[in-house]
Computed example of a mutant assay.
Amino acid sequence: MTALWQRLILISPFFFWGTAMVAMKEVMPHTSPLWIAGVRLVPAGLLVLGVAIALGKPQPNTLGAWGWISLFALVDGFLFQGLLATGLSKTGAGLGSVMIDSQPLAVALLSRWLYQERVGGWGWLGLLLGLGGISAIGLGDDLLPLLHQPSAWQGIPWGQWWQRGELWMLLAALSMAVGTILMRPLARYADPVVATGWHMVLGGLPLLIWPSLNTPAPWAALQWSDVLNLGYATLFGSALSYGVFFYFAAKGNLTSLSALTFLTPVFALTFGHWFLGETLSQVQLLGVGLTLVSIYIINQRQVLGQWWQQLPLPTRLRESATSVSVKVVDEMK
């Protein structure tokens, strides 16, 4: 497999996640958000398990394996997808995707703490730029008054945030970050692809069954276009994307992989504009630019570090920058 195809496969989950947000948003007016989450998970999980069986992947057969899979199902299945669908019903597809993709910073911090993954000065710079980028995309023009008048923060009705989709999306981001971290120890007990399939089924069943007990049934008002959108979100936005993402999460550097999720809002905002009429302000466009720069910095941080060391800078400036970087990293230990 060529390097180009490997990169395309690595990026594919984030493209499908972004476009699946748009597909799910179009279905929201006709059914329950939690039921959409269940439909997205359970059939996709069964499909992943079917592929795993066809490939001869071993099924979990120990109590430890099922324990980790159950925890994974609770955090990354039930909580993440439930919070995501609830938040998406209260906000736009592009904005919702942006808020969810604040999770790479949490992944970097947890990976540093639990797995001693080195982020480095360039990595932290990239993560902070990415966080600033998604903040600019999420807040848009509302960000400018907050920067010019810090007292404006006092006028924000924090008690009403539970009614806002942004908070639900941030909680979903935290759930996804924890789920990403869980995949590494889980992979010691079960095959990553098999674990991905089971966690989708176990985490999605409550989301599928609970709304189905209500009257009218959550599928009563669906249209054929909704069925196609749900099929896309299930097949590409869940089955294929989850399988690829957690396969790489079990084997690769979590910080670098997670940082690619900054691509998801770019795809979601682009297709949200095309299909849902969502528009971007100048501040949001600046945020997209910062997001793309952050992806490059994080994934090329080792190359950038070598380039920095080779620059003909004054010795005092180089030593000062290096000592600051070391100090920051030591404080994060």
Rank of each mutant, 00 (worst) to 15 (best):
G82Y: 09
L84A: 14
S102P: 00
S89V: 01
D76Y: 15
G87E: 03
W66K: 09
L83H: 06
S89R: 11
D101M: 10
G92P: 06
V75H: 12
I100Y: 05
D101V: 13
S70R: 09
G67A: 04
W66P: 04
L88N: 04
T91Y: 09
W68C: 00
T86Y: 11
D101C: 14
L84T: 15
F80Y: 15
G92C: 08
I100S: 04
L84K: 09
G96Y: 00
A93M: 06
G82K: 12
S70P: 01
A93L: 03
K90E: 10
D101A: 13
G67K: 08
G82Q: 09
F78M: 05
T91I: 07
L88V: 08
L74R: 03
S102W: 06
A85D: 01
A93S: 14
W68P: 05
S89E: 11
D76K: 12
Q81C: 01
D76Q: 15
L79S: 12
M99R: 04
F78K: 03
G77N: 13
G77A: 11
L95G: 08
I69R: 07
I100K: 02
L83Q: 05
L71A: 14
L71M: 14
I69P: 00
S97W: 00
L88A: 05
L88Y: 00
G96E: 00
Q81Y: 15
F72H: 10
S97K: 07
L95D: 11
V75T: 14
G94M: 03
L83R: 06
G87Y: 05
G67S: 09
L95S: 10
Q81N: 13
G87D: 01
W66C: 05
D101R: 08
G82T: 08
A85N: 07
A93N: 10
L71N: 12
V98Q: 11
G92L: 10
D76L: 12
M99T: 09
F72D: 02
S97I: 03
S102E: 06
G92M: 08
V75F: 13
G96Q: 02
L88D: 01
G96T: 00
L83A: 11
I69E: 04
V98T: 15
M99P: 04
G87K: 06
G87F: 03
G92K: 06
L71Y: 14
L71D: 13
V98A: 15
K90P: 01
F72L: 07
I69T: 08
G82P: 00
I100N: 03
F72P: 00
W68F: 13
S97D: 11
S70F: 14
L79M: 14
V98K: 02
D101G: 09
L74Q: 03
L83F: 13
A73N: 08
L79T: 13
I69D: 02
I100Q: 07
G94R: 01
F72E: 08
D101W: 05
W66M: 07
A73H: 12
L88P: 05
K90H: 13
L74W: 14
S97Y: 02
V98S: 15
W68V: 05
L79N: 11
G92Q: 10
I100E: 01
S89Q: 09
A73M: 08
F80R: 06
F80G: 02
T86V: 10
W66V: 12
K90L: 14
Q81G: 00
V98P: 02
A93V: 04
V75P: 02
G96L: 00
T91V: 10
L83K: 07
A85M: 11
F80P: 01
G77L: 08
